[in-house]
Design a protein around this nucleic acid. Sequence first.
DNA 1: GTCTATAAAGTGATAGAC
DNA 2: GTCTATCACTTTATAGAC
Lengths: 189, 189
Amino acid sequence: MAERGSYAKGVARREEILAAALDVFSREGYRGTSLREVAKQVGVSLPGLMHYFESKEHLLTAILQKRDEVDTATYSSNDDLIDGLVRIMRHNRDVPGLVQLFITLAAAAEDPSHPAHPFFIDRYSVVLSTLADAIRDRQAAGTARADLDPEHIARVLVAVADGIQIQWALDRSVDMAGDIERLWAALSA
Amino acid sequence: MAERGSYAKGVARREEILAAALDVFSREGYRGTSLREVAKQVGVSLPGLMHYFESKEHLLTAILQKRDEVDTATYSSNDDLIDGLVRIMRHNRDVPGLVQLFITLAAAAEDPSHPAHPFFIDRYSVVLSTLADAIRDRQAAGTARADLDPEHIARVLVAVADGIQIQWALDRSVDMAGDIERLWAALSA
DNA sequence: GTCTATAAAGTGATAGAC
DNA sequence: GTCTATCACTTTATAGAC
């Protein structure tokens, strides 16, 4: 292809913009942020932003996708996935904007025609099955109650993680990671 | 006051509009519904709607408030509150629009200046303390494990209820009420 | 008091110049 | 590949009839 150089440059610019947008949404909230404001903070014009992301919802989806990549690599790589979940919840205290964005977009993605719909379907599918595997591993190692249904407990743990973020967003004194650890302890007793 | 008659009529009209709006949001989704569309479906003009609700977010808040009144009276009046929670989750399958509205508005209400902020703060405060009381009652009756911390388990149950709605919205095969019942069973074993 | 009509301010999205 | 200019549509606000 003749535009190989330009294509690579375009991808790099898109990554630059995505990283900057991720940073903006991490620090500032999600509410009230117009694309014009995001574009300004990122250092590009509105059409410049939309040249790389075909709509606002596509940009927001890409941000959450990028966040997952970074978080997975940082907090739950070569280790027990339940501990990884707790570590991610601890980290979430530092990125309130992403917490709010995640909940809002997850709710909106219910609509099958929403751009984020496939992302969330796939995300929950992967998270639930890998978490169920982690529970099975603990059961095999004798560090988890044998009578627990791995699929059910995985679903519950993910639900608690999502739901506790709503409560934390309204009341920052809520200890998200601690509550999950204590639930697991109560389920292991 | 001289306007007593008219005032009463205004309140009745507001209740009419609120009931109609609640019905619209229950059936249809929340996403994409403009105030003009709500007004049309309710049978009033846009300024007619805004005469009774000072902003869109105020209307949405009033809808959730009304829903809580109805649900509390219908599903958790003179009975065990944990059973009431399960019944409400079972009922929620019939009102997907309200489920989506609740999650979206709860996330947005994180902002202390959001009109729904006081509503959610108060709501979680009441729900958590009454649910903790219900857990204490079960412990006193010997039908719940004595080592459970009522406040912690109440917070976890509410988090599961909220989080499981997100998963259900994306995958309608999720059994919201059943998952909560099974979690309680696992915590009682 | 309640409504119809209309406009202001801001949003996401697009067309077309360079 | 990035801009200026503009569009259609949103929420919100106001003027004025009845």
